[in-house]
Design a protein around this nucleic acid. Structure first.
Length: 269
DNA sequence: AATGGGACCTGCGCGC
DNA sequence: TGCGCGCAGGTCCCAT
């Protein structure tokens, strides 16, 4: 499900709703989503602790707790965090000191909850590439220069740059007018500059609209994000390009559905 | 080293 | 109406 804009939206909403509250009980309806430690220690370690700080690293949410431990939440494809929750469809619910529930929903059970002594020690975190908003143009150009991988899978590689997934790569590359299969090191200086600008612009805009609700993603309040109305290519196979009227194409690249305009995003050979 | 496929899972929409 | 197939905002692991 969620990419940087969705996770950032959730982070901001959790900050408004659950920050500084105490978890008083943990209800586990499906232990599969608890990756570590084992269920009983997970529950014990999360009971009677306060949520002290909420962070996002790439697509990972981190709740730092008064105990010194942290709850790391990866929503993967269909994870949701809902407050106040009903507990009815949740895999795990956290009962808070205000008497309300924070629900973790996840229909596909791919999501991951981890109670950690030190989130910085997570392999995923240690290998995570830079945040797009922390990068300078110079650094970005340098990162691309050494890479001959196709640009789309490269932008989705979390060790290269963090937070960008399948949907936003498609939108970013369309706006930058770059074909998804272009080798990264074949981009001209000008293209790298435009790409850099569009990464930040698309992500920033998507955050402003609360993310894209394509299927499962909802905000903490349960309502959807509105950025989908701004999509130019993602999910638009066979529809006409807003710029040139050519039909949007869908291919498979690195195993993922890939949408682009074959005219605006011409592949140079 | 880099790429591709499968695995992890459930559920939806589509065509027959 | 019902069934089977393809597909899904992610990541990890294994084979080549």
């Amino acid at each position: 499900m969620p990419e940087l804009p969705e996770v950032e939206t959730i982070k901001r909403e959790l900050t408004k709703t659950v920050l500084d509250k105490k978890i008083v009980d943990v209800i586990v309806n499906n232990p599969k989503v608890i990756r570590e430690p084992k269920k009983s220690d997970f529950i014990k370690g999360l009971t009677n602790v306060r949520v002290k700080n909420i962070l996002r690293k790439g697509k990972l949410l981190i709740l730092e707790l008064s105990s010194g431990k942290s709850l790391a939440i990866h929503l993967k494809m269909t994870g949701q965090l809902i407050y106040p929750g009903s507990g009815k469809t949740s895999r795990v619910s956290f009962k808070l000191s205000d008497g309300k529930l924070l629900d973790f929903n996840d229909s596909r059970l791919l999501g991951e909850l981890r109670l950690l002594d030190e989130w910085r020690a997570l392999k995923f975190i240690k290998e995570l590439g830079p945040e797009p908003f922390d990068l300078s143009l110079g650094q970005f150009k340098e990162m691309l220069a050494k890479k001959k991988a196709k640009i789309k899978p490269l932008l989705m590689d979390q060790t290269f740059i963090s937070g960008i997934g399948n949907l936003y790569t498609a939108e970013i590359l369309f706006r930058a007018k770059i074909h998804p299969e272009r080798p990264a090191n074949s981009l001209s200086d000008k293209e790298k500059e435009i790409l850099f600008k569009e990464i930040k612009e698309v992500l920033r805009e998507a955050i402003r609209y609360g993310g894209s609700s394509v299927r499962d993603y909802v905000r903490v309040s349960g309502r959807g994000g509105d950025y989908i109305t701004h999509h130019k290519v993602y999910g638009r196979e066979g529809k006409s390009c807003f710029v040139c009227k050519t039909l949007i194409k869908r291919t498979t690249l690195g195993g993922r559905g890939t949408y682009f305009c074959p005219k605006c995003q011409f592949l140079l050979k």
